Amino acid sequence: MSDAYDFSDRIGRVEPSATLAISNLAAEKEAEGADIVDLSVGEPDFDTPSNVVEAGKDALDAGHTGYTSSNGIPELKEAIAAKLRDDGIDADADEVIVTPGGKQALYETFQTLIDDGDEVVLLDPAWVSYEAMAKLAGADLSRVDLAPHGFQLEPALDALAETVSDDTELLVVNSPSNPTGAVFSEAALEGVRDLAVEHDVAVISDEIYQRITYDAEHVSLASLDGMADRTITVNGFSKAYSMTGWRLGYFHATDEFVGQAGKLHSHSVSCAVNFVQRAGVEALENTDESVTEMRDAFRDRRDLLVDLFDEHGVDVDIGDGAFYMMIPVDEDDQAWCEAAIEEASVACVPGSAFNAPGYARISYAASEKRLREAVDRLVSNDLL
């Protein structure tokens, strides 16, 4: 075996994505002929709206296959800024960077703000990539556990206040939440605002699931008084418009931040894909009906699962957004998820991947028939 590679300390700080690892295992078993109900992946099971697909095709036919300006085409940045203004954020197109997916927007934000030893505060359970990106940037992590509070932030504000200090560089807020589906109340976000202003802390507001909300109103953090100059709003097209493979996202912040982050952006990805950006304009402007239909289907599936779990004595905290649910399982959630896929042919993600041991995350981006099958299989194999 060659010793030619001397791997960086940086890459040694992170582990492969547990979510993708489970999804890959499910794919392997399916390739071997197994019938897997895959509830592990964070991907809508709906087609991209047909008008968006046609817009992409039209852009290809029109020859939009070259580089664009690094931060994005003007039409898309203007459409994004208009969308943000509808959310109550005072946004200008020049304050937007269009990225190849929301992950890239987050990565550039961490790299722009964080030096070795800087404190980043996460709200647990937290999406696995936040920790990885923070560690790649050299951050020291502090965490606030929302699990004892039904995964809600408002009752955990005292704990957050004990964690955030003048030494905190960055706080990450994700509402609606992956992995819990929780939508944080306006009062909770006002609590975040008060702490951020008091301690002069920057905040990432990851709003990728914003359009998938049910019985709670989404509030954009940057719309609150005092937050416009300290919030990096991250969003994208993967979830709301079922465009995961198109890889299109964006972030909005101050001119100063965009100027600094833009240096990393231009030297790494250059720009998001030209024709995909043009499809993004169509998604923002002409898909309200498709988004509503998908959201309503997800709500029905959530309600079905709540009822099914209740029938079998499993209490779950009901999220008002995204398409995820955390279910309580054995203390060794990794072993439980392995048994679920090996014995019941149901793929779930261990809660420990999100710093929530004792839980498993399930995605209800699957048909009602398959969701019923999943619960039946787990019950028949004594896993619920």
Score class of each variant (00 low, 15 high):
T180R: 05
A188C: 03
A126Q: 07
R377P: 10
S380N: 13
A134W: 05
M133D: 10
A365V: 02
D382I: 09
A253R: 00
R230F: 05
K57D: 08
V276C: 03
G351V: 13
F275M: 06
S177D: 12
A188S: 00
H312P: 05
D229E: 13
F323H: 04
R247Q: 09
D35Y: 05
I89T: 10
N355K: 15
N286D: 12
V197W: 01
D115L: 13
I362E: 06
S129T: 14
G42S: 15
Y107C: 04
V14W: 03
L123P: 00
F151M: 12
D3I: 00
N286V: 00
T180G: 09
T180S: 15
T180D: 09
V201N: 08
A188V: 09
S70R: 03
R143S: 09
V52R: 02
A374F: 01
M294Q: 11
P350D: 06
H252N: 02
D167L: 02
R85T: 08
S223W: 02
S220I: 03
L84F: 13
E186Y: 05
N274H: 11
E75T: 08
D206I: 07
P176W: 01
D158I: 15
G42A: 14
V234Q: 10
L160V: 04
E373V: 15
E217N: 09
A126N: 08
V53D: 07
D296Q: 14
T244R: 09
A360I: 09
L264A: 11
V379F: 01
V201E: 03
D118L: 10
R230W: 03
M1E: 09
W336H: 10
F298R: 14
D315Q: 12
N24T: 14
A187T: 06
F151I: 01
A322M: 04
H149R: 02
S2V: 07
V234R: 12
A340G: 05
A126W: 08
E162H: 10
I73G: 10
G56W: 00
V258C: 04
T231Y: 00
I89H: 07
D115S: 15
A26F: 12
R370E: 15
L248C: 01
L284V: 14
A81Q: 04
D87Q: 14
V346C: 07
E119W: 00
S40W: 00
R211N: 08
E95D: 07
A279H: 06
G117K: 10
S290T: 06
A353P: 01
V121A: 05
D87T: 08
I36N: 03
V121P: 03
A4R: 13
D92C: 05
P100I: 07
A82K: 08
V273E: 13
D200H: 12
V173L: 11
L136T: 03
V192D: 04
V96I: 09
D92A: 11
P357F: 11
H149W: 01
D45F: 09
T112P: 14
D215P: 02
L189W: 14
L160F: 04
L378V: 08
I208P: 08
F275D: 04
R143E: 11
F7T: 15
I212P: 00
L60I: 10
A366K: 08
A216R: 13
